[in-house]
């Protein structure tokens, strides 16, 4: 009985953890995505980057 309860609790804990890690994953995708977007814009606006190929 206790074992069963323990395993149920563990399962709940696992699914909670999985939920949390998924959220962390989504958050980091969005966070880094935004960071990269800013980086892209900054680099595009910097002058003289297309030095090798002019078109």
């Amino acid at each position: 009985m206790a074992l069963e309860a323990g395993s149920v609790a563990m399962q709940e804990q696992n699914s909670a953890l999985r939920m949390k890690t998924t959220l962390a994953f989504i958050a980091s995708v969005l966070g880094f995505g935004a960071l990269f977007l800013v980086l892209d814009l900054l680099l595009f606006n910097a002058q003289g980057l297309s030095f090798v190929f002019k078109g």
């Binding site: 953890l17 962390a24 994953f25 989504i26 980091s28 995708v29 880094f32 995505g33 977007l37």
Partner: peptide
């Protein structure tokens, strides 16, 4: 650990998306 892994996976996913988008 789990969050660290998620962070790294997110970083890779975002990078792949950004590079493909560019």
């Amino acid at each position: 650990v789990k969050y660290g892994n998620a962070l790294q996976a997110g970083l890779f996913t975002a990078a792949v998306a950004n590079i493909s988008f560019l």
